[in-house]
Simulated scan of single mutants.
Amino acid sequence: MMKRIVHVSALLLLVGTMVFAADPKFNLNARVSSNLFTYDVTNGNMTKKLGIGDVSSTDTVAISYSDKNAGAYLSLKVSDLIGSSGGTTVTDDYYGWMKFGDLKLTAGEWDHRYASRVTTDASSFGGLWDLKYGVLTYSASAEGRVSVTESDNITPWEIEAAADYVFQDLTVSLSTGNVSASNAYKDYNVAEFFGARAAYKVKDVVDANVSFVMNGKNKMQIGAFGNLLMVKGLTLVAGYSGYQDLDNSVNSRNAGELRARYAIDALAITTHNNVTVGDKRLIIYDMVSLSYKINDVITPSLMVANTNFSGDNTAAAQRGNVLVVKPGITLTAQKGATIDAALRFTITNPETGSSSTIMDMPVVFRVKF
């Protein structure tokens, strides 16, 4: 109860600060999602009937304030399983930042990324649209059965600090941090937990960056990406992601990545591709999305994503193919206020065992100012 009160008090304090500021510049964001039903097409079973509140782990409310040289952000993750004593609220992200000329300092808990993830048409669907740059791993509970160990995030911990210095077209960043478990962040070897990035932009040509994170003794995460800027209407990002375990090379993985988007008037096509190679492990991920903006209110879309898991060191139960087909629609009340709904088919074809087809209907309600 005390933790919940502290979170609410912090949010009210931030709201009060913005209300009484001379020139407030703030954002509010509320995201509520649900899976309205789940139907097993293979067996003909309705495993979840019509309802709301099935995916509470993605419900968030956030508020931020920014001025010329300072700002703050607070995001709370909210459970929609509310009983007579209330629901559960936990801190998701929080941080503050200050600028001193070309130097920016940030402290708290947040994700410090740089490369464009090519998600212009993602709206608030989440899932595979939220897949970050990095080496892929199998995840039974994730959309497409795939998750990622990031390569472009130089603050992958829970309590962090970073400095960014801009000199003309060059940006240099340094970070450090650790997790909160067992109070690890209070006493740790900075040489084993730090991040660094160099980014350079040539106007209308390329925006490139290289990131390096030491995430534990002899555990390294590496990313290098280039965003080509030469063709109008085209976004093209290509790069490399790596996870290197110097103590046990069996855990090391490398990935080649390519993402692109091309827009012609109201039609946009996006593709995300990742090939991750490990010790006798191979994951190939390909996604393509089509969207067409009919008017300011209605935007239909279609996503098709395929993930293939293979290799002698890939568990037998994981080897095979997972196909996600997701026709959807976005309804926009005004800028920042959307409802995303989709009919999702997940078709699993394992090398051993039976195939399955699951149909469900994720819906996301979001208001963002």
Rank of each mutant, 00 (worst) to 15 (best):
S252W: 09
G256E: 00
V172P: 00
K293V: 13
A115V: 15
S79D: 11
A10W: 07
V78P: 01
V78M: 06
D164A: 14
A337E: 01
K132H: 08
M287W: 06
S34I: 09
F20W: 09
G256N: 03
L103G: 09
G278Q: 06
E351W: 06
A140E: 12
H272A: 05
S291I: 13
A181L: 04
K77G: 07
S56H: 10
R4Y: 12
S301P: 06
G126Q: 07
R197T: 12
N313C: 04
G311W: 09
I82Q: 02
D102Y: 07
V146Y: 00
V288Y: 04
T299N: 07
G226D: 08
Y133W: 14
L174H: 04
P327M: 07
K232H: 10
A255F: 14
F125Q: 03
P156C: 05
D360S: 14
L323I: 14
K25Y: 10
F194S: 07
S123N: 09
K3S: 07
A70H: 12
D93N: 13
N349F: 02
G311P: 09
L234S: 04
D245L: 02
L13M: 08
T270I: 02
S123I: 04
S56G: 10
G242H: 11
I269R: 04
D59T: 15
N183M: 03
D93S: 08
Y94T: 13
D204S: 15
N349S: 12
G328E: 00
Y188N: 05
N306D: 04
N29E: 02
R281L: 02
T58A: 02
T47L: 00
R31N: 11
K280M: 06
Y188G: 05
N43P: 06
D340L: 05
H112S: 06
Y285L: 02
N313Y: 13
N209D: 11
A72W: 05
A316I: 15
D207F: 14
S175R: 10
Y133K: 08
F20P: 00
S56L: 00
Y114F: 11
D121K: 12
F37D: 01
G44L: 07
A238M: 07
V322Y: 02
V322H: 05
T106G: 01
T91E: 01
K77C: 01
P350G: 09
D59I: 13
P156D: 04
L234P: 05
M359L: 15
R261K: 13
F100P: 00
A10L: 10
L131W: 12
M287S: 14
V277P: 00
V275W: 12
G51L: 04
G51W: 07
S173H: 07
Y94N: 00
G216F: 13
I269W: 07
R261V: 08
L103A: 12
L103Q: 06
G223M: 03
I284V: 13
Y165A: 01
E160Y: 11
S116P: 02
